[in-house]
Simulated scan of single mutants.
Amino acid sequence: MTDYRTVGLIHLFIAGVSVLTPLIGAVVAGTHIRRRGRNARLAMIGCLVTAPGPIVLVLGAGIGLDSLFAGVEPLVALSVVSAISVLFQLAGLVLILAGALTEPARPAAYQAPYPYAAPFHVYPTDAPPGH
């Protein structure tokens, strides 16, 4: 006999890990934005786009597919909810890969603080004129 409470807890644990993993990835990518720039920003956005995928799947199955899709078979309804979830995950994966595989931006060329080659001379203002 199947213990549905245990199966439900295992499903809840897996769903929690599925939601927390991209959020942790977003935090890690966010900490590297200063060093990695645009690439880390793309990875962070990709992780945030990926996070709603499991939420849609869990809420779709948790609310009840029969109430969401009254006139459709349960397998078709589950396929629709899974397809919506996969769209989030694929969009996030594309952004993460774009951040990981693109070449980092080159730093700007160094510019001197002043356009003059010679240093500025400071003249005392309390000296008498003409000296």
Results as ranks from 00 to 15, higher is better:
G30E: 01
Q89F: 07
I63H: 07
A117G: 13
I84F: 09
A70R: 15
A43D: 00
I33A: 08
A61N: 15
V49W: 07
V80S: 08
N39P: 02
L97R: 15
A77N: 07
E73N: 14
A100S: 10
G130H: 12
V19D: 02
P22K: 04
I55R: 04
M44R: 15
V56S: 09
S18Y: 06
P113S: 07
R106T: 11
G16W: 09
I14T: 11
A118N: 10
T31S: 12
I96C: 07
T21A: 14
P119Y: 02
G46V: 01
P54A: 05
P129F: 05
L42C: 02
A127P: 00
G60L: 02
A118P: 00
L20W: 11
L65K: 07
L101E: 10
L59I: 07
D66N: 13
R41P: 00
V58E: 12
V86Q: 10
V94H: 03
D66E: 14
L68F: 04
I63M: 11
A43E: 15
D126S: 10
G16V: 02
G53M: 03
V19W: 06
A26S: 09
V17G: 08
F88N: 06
I45C: 03
T50K: 14
I45Q: 01
L95R: 05
P124R: 14
V28Y: 12
H121F: 06
L59G: 01
H121D: 11
A98H: 13
Y4R: 11
V76Q: 15
V122S: 06
R41V: 04
G99R: 00
S79Y: 04
A61H: 15
A51G: 02
T102F: 01
A109Q: 12
A127M: 09
R38Y: 08
G37Q: 07
G99D: 02
T31A: 12
S79G: 12
S67N: 13
L20V: 10
I24C: 04
G37L: 01
L59D: 02
V72E: 13
A77W: 00
A109L: 09
A98I: 02
I10N: 06
V56M: 07
F88Q: 06
V122Q: 07
L9Q: 13
L101P: 01
A91W: 12
P104C: 01
V86F: 12
V94N: 00
A127T: 09
G46W: 00
V72I: 14
T2E: 10
T125Y: 09
G60F: 02
T50Y: 10
G16M: 08
V94M: 05
A43I: 12
F69E: 08
P74F: 04
V49K: 04
G53I: 03
D126K: 07
A40W: 05
A40I: 07
V56T: 13
P54F: 04
I14L: 15
R41Q: 10
